[in-house]
């Protein structure tokens, strides 16, 4: 059980760190959003998973009721995180494009042609 928790934690932290490095390295709003939404969602899901595994194992082991409560709460948080992260990214990307922050570098921008015509 402890090995599973550790592996999940390491994967989660690794992807969260990659997300942060991505934010620092990428050139514009849109590419940075790629790094921050995907990597941090995946990383946080794995951190949550490690909490769920730990709490569920404690509950199964000594019937520790607060641990069951913890596992159920984190499960809800995990799903909410996946949905709100994606929706938040849409909102930021759309707001950036509408306020005139165009992707650069960029080889093609269908949305901008749409607005111009």
């Amino acid at each position: 059980m402890e090995a599973v928790v550790l592996i999940c934690l390491v994967i989660g932290l690794l992807f969260n760190s990659l997300g942060i490095i991505g934010i620092l390295r990428f050139p514009d709003v849109y590419t940075r959003l790629h790094a921050s939404t995907k990597a941090t969602t995946f990383g946080s899901i794995f951190v949550s998973l490690s909490v769920i595994v730990y709490a569920a194992a404690r509950f199964a082991g000594d019937g520790d009721r607060p641990m069951l409560s913890l596992a159920l709460h984190v499960l809800v948080a995990m799903f909410v995180l996946a949905f709100t992260n994606a929706a938040g990214a849409h909102a930021i990307a759309r707001a950036a494009h509408r306020s005139g922050t165009l992707p650069s570098p960029s080889v093609r921008d269908d949305l901008n042609e749409e607005a111009g015509s």
Partner: peptide, 24 residues
């Protein structure tokens, strides 16, 4: 698909190889 996406982002974060654009 999500796992694939993250390996892809990890690869691009490390190498910096990007060629972005918006398509309909």
């Amino acid at each position: 698909e999500m796992a694939k996406a993250n390996l892809d982002v990890a690869y691009r974060v490390i190498t910096g190889r990007i060629n972005p654009g918006i398509v309909r």
